[in-house]
Every structure is written in structure tokens, then in C-alpha cells.
Simulated scan of single mutants.
Amino acid sequence: MQFTVERHDTYTEVKGEGRLNMVAAPKLKDVVATEIGAGSRQIVVELGQTEFMDSSGLGALISCLKLARQASGDLRIANVPPQVLMVLQLTSMDRVLTPYPDAVSAFPAG
């Protein structure tokens, strides 16, 4: 899985492309930790190009959420594909990581 980072005025967007599994999970945590270390407090993980997520990927998202909150920030997810949404719903984690339709609506300006 590859990750790209885009910094916006009010949030930082981390886009993942591929499979969010036990191989990619540590990479996601590293990318988010680096962004938080650089001063980003509002992180959006954009999952539109994520074709698969397993329990390792879910664990990575939760770890990233904890990192952001420990830094007095927040992490949100956006553009969640059906397979990833199903994993979130089956584990009831969609209540903790509320899916947003896109990155802009996850952290609206103002």
C-alpha cells in the first residue's frame, strides 16, 4: 500500500491506495505519527482507493486515532469503500471512526 500526504489549511490528508493489511498497517502508523510530529493535529485518512482492510488495518486506524488525540487533535476517515465500511460496521468501529463522504466534510472550515 502506498500513502501520499496533502497538507491543507485546516487538516492534513493521508491517502492510501491498495490493501490496508498487516504489511501496510505499520506504514500508515508511521506516516500519521510523522505528520503529528510535524505539527498536524487534524488528520483525515482518505480511503477511497483502499481495496481491502483487515483487522490489522483497523488496529492501525485506531492507533492513529489515539496518537492524534494524545496530541490534542483528531483523526477522521473519508470516502470509505463498501468493503472497508463493512469491516467498520461488523466491529461497531464506525461509531468511533465516523465515515465522512470526503476529506473536506471531515474537517469543515470555520
Rank of each mutant, 00 (worst) to 15 (best):
35 E>M: 03
41 R>E: 15
43 I>G: 09
54 D>Y: 03
31 V>P: 07
17 E>P: 05
31 V>G: 03
105 S>L: 03
56 S>I: 07
14 V>S: 09
109 A>L: 15
68 A>G: 10
68 A>Q: 01
93 M>E: 08
62 I>R: 00
78 A>H: 02
91 T>S: 11
25 A>N: 05
17 E>V: 13
2 Q>D: 12
75 L>F: 09
40 S>A: 15
14 V>K: 05
81 P>S: 03
109 A>Q: 14
80 V>H: 06
27 K>I: 14
2 Q>N: 15
28 L>G: 08
77 I>Q: 06
42 Q>S: 11
45 V>A: 06
12 T>F: 11
98 T>Y: 04
108 P>D: 00
84 V>G: 00
66 K>I: 07
85 L>V: 05
53 M>N: 13
58 L>F: 00
77 I>H: 01
76 R>L: 01
106 A>P: 08
75 L>N: 00
41 R>D: 04
52 F>S: 03
3 F>D: 11
88 L>H: 05
106 A>D: 10
17 E>T: 13
34 T>P: 03
23 V>E: 14
36 I>N: 12
62 I>M: 10
8 H>G: 07
91 T>I: 01
77 I>A: 00
82 P>W: 05
23 V>N: 15
85 L>C: 02
109 A>W: 04
72 S>I: 09
5 V>F: 06
3 F>R: 02
50 T>G: 14
74 D>V: 09
87 V>D: 02
16 G>L: 01
51 E>W: 03
100 Y>G: 02
107 F>G: 13
108 P>K: 00
97 L>M: 01
39 G>K: 01
66 K>Q: 10
6 E>S: 06
51 E>F: 07
10 T>C: 10
57 G>H: 04
102 D>I: 04
86 M>S: 11
86 M>Y: 12
36 I>P: 01
67 L>T: 10
106 A>S: 06
108 P>N: 13
1 M>T: 11
99 P>V: 12
63 S>L: 06
12 T>H: 09
80 V>R: 03
45 V>Q: 05
8 H>I: 10
64 C>S: 08
80 V>P: 02
61 L>W: 08
29 K>F: 13
110 G>K: 09
59 G>L: 01
44 V>I: 02
16 G>W: 04
36 I>L: 13
71 A>L: 14
99 P>I: 04
86 M>Q: 14
